[in-house]
Design a binder for these strands. Structure first.
Length: 440
RNA sequence: CGGAGCAUAGCGCAGCCCGGUAGCGCAUCUGCUUUGGGAGCAGAGGGUCGCAGGUUCGAAUCCUGCUGCUCCGACCA
């Protein structure tokens, strides 16, 4: 992409409403624009990151055996009356009437709908286990939206719902998601720690929150420091190996880790003092097992091998990609701007033409650009006639992991500079070597 | 939902107390000079002063109502 043709409204000054660093940087980097309290338009740069986050979420959900579908944003009130949550949910639910005065709502979650869908088709234990997920916009009419897309009213959510014949099967489904979550966050460059969680209004008795550590996090968390160095299960993990998967989950839950709501100071105190970690954290995922809480009121049951009818055991598993984008920035930024992990960077590489109009510099940039594009690399070519300093500032602000600085100085020696955003280091290398390095 | 505050150009703000035909910085556009860490000079464009009423010869400014947004607290993927 040529910057001169792109839509990247960078702000030099910070809109005053932005309090936390991720919100400020997202506005400055031209990633989002507020349209209403807690409602945002995703501008091209922000959308690129959001899509990359979703792609990783999808890959790991699919790897763990979950199947994607797509449910609507608008649901009927009747569906929610069936579970009894229409009245319970309160003012957080955005209620709407259509032209026929039918009561509708903008979905805050989809347990009811997915249960209704499965009830309609699944009649035999042979169809189980089943895990269906979708990535869809949701709306919760928060009393006080804040922190940009971190706590917005409209937000993108991946929610998966598992269906099993019995509690043991459900436990296995839970473990699949548990491992999938470890992998998902790890691939985004985050260290996410599963913590024992309150099951909240959704209910159930088995639940973990996935927390990443960030000084700006809103919850207080306590855990064993060994979690920070734990190896995440590999891509070759056999998700059908029940015992093996349980072993992985056990490894990841045997050490102490809890949010302040579930904090047990005795257990925490039992950790050797130097390994005690009290920090602030951001919740980026939450998984639940809730048994027959929804299948019972919906009459979602299957016939088992014994010929009898069994209530389906369910779990649900959420990740908020829109929130994750903010969380990623909270976890990775500096004074100059965002420091994207490569896996989610809007563009992996930036080419900075430090002297637009100079024929040698222009030619070298065009050549590099063409070759990187041909190699299938996401590259943003700053071909504008801004001064070098402004280009450095912009590239650092939007967090491009690799920046190729092309100017007359280094070009005189047949070189360009390859700069790493994460530590600011630069190397003088030939254009051919840059290609080599970035495509390796 | 309790408490506090704000609303003037794309962004950040001044002007309001004390009414008199709307201003600054950044951004944008044109020209010239610059050109390796957010350049300089000269010029230009851009605003129903959140909305609706009222007071007044005259309202961004005073009064009333409304709307939107932000912050603190309780709640929350």
């Amino acid at each position: 992409m040529r910057l001169s043709r792109y839509f990247l409204p960078i702000l030099r000054e910070v809109p005053k409403e932005a309090e936390i660093v991720s919100h400020r940087l997202m506005l400055r980097a031209g990633m989002v624009r507020q349209e209403s309290a807690g409602i945002y338009a995703w501008l091209p740069l922000g959308l690129r990151v959001l899509n990359k986050v979703c792609a990783i979420v999808r890959e790991e959900q699919n790897r763990a055996g979950a199947i994607e579908l797509l449910m609507p944003t608008i649901q009927s009130a009747d569906l929610w009356r069936e579970s009894g949550r229409y009245d319970d949910y309160g003012k957080e639910m955005l209620r709407i009437r259509d032209r026929h005065e039918r009561e509708m709502l903008f979905g805050p979650t989809n347990e009811e709908m997915i249960t209704e869908i499965v009830r309609g088709y699944v009649k035999s234990y042979k169809s189980l286990p089943l895990n269906l997920y979708h990535i869809q916009w949701k709306f919760r009419d928060e009393v006080r939206p804040r922190f940009g897309v971190y706590r917005s009213r409209e937000f993108l959510m991946k929610d998966a719902y598992s269906f099993d014949l019995d509690a043991e099967g459900a436990r296995h489904s839970y473990n699949k998601m548990f491992v999938a979550y470890l992998r998902t966050f790890s691939r985004m460059g985050l260290k996410a720690i599963p913590m024992v969680a309150d099951t909240g209004p959704i209910g159930g008795n088995l639940s973990h929150e996935f927390i990443i550590l960030a000084s700006t996090g809103e919850s207080e968390v306590f855990c064993h420091a060994d979690y920070l160095d734990k190896a995440v299960p590999g891509a070759g993990t056999d998700f059908e190996d029940r015992a093996g998967l349980q072993g992985l989950v056990d490894q990841w839950t045997e050490l102490y880790a809890a949010t302040s709501e579930k904090h047990d100071s005795d257990a925490f105190g039992a950790i050797p003092e130097p390994r005690r970690l009290a920090a602030r954290g951001i919740e980026v995922g939450h998984i639940f097992y809730f048994g027959t809480k929804y299948s019972a009121p919906f009459g979602a049951k299957v016939q088992g091998p014994d010929g009898a009818e069994h209530m389906i055991h369910m779990g649900s598993y959420g990740i908020g990609p829109s929130r994750l984008v903010a969380a990623l920035i909270e976890a990775s930024h500096d004074e100059a701007g965002i420091v994207w992990p490569e896996a989610v960077a809007p563009f992996r590489v930036g080419i900075l033409n430090l002297k637009t109009g100079d024929s040698a510099t222009d030619a070298a940039c065009e050549d590099l650009y063409a070759r990187l594009v041909a190699a299938g690399i996401d590259v943003l070519y700053d071909d504008t006639d801004e001064r070098a300093g402004a280009k450095f500032a912009s590239a650092d602000l939007i967090g491009l992991p690799w920046q190729i600085l092309v100017g007359p100085k280094s070009l005189a020696a047949g070189k360009v500079e390859l700069k790493r955003r994460v530590d600011g280091t630069r190397e003088l290398v030939s254009p051919d070597d840059v290609l080599e390095r970035l495509t390796a």
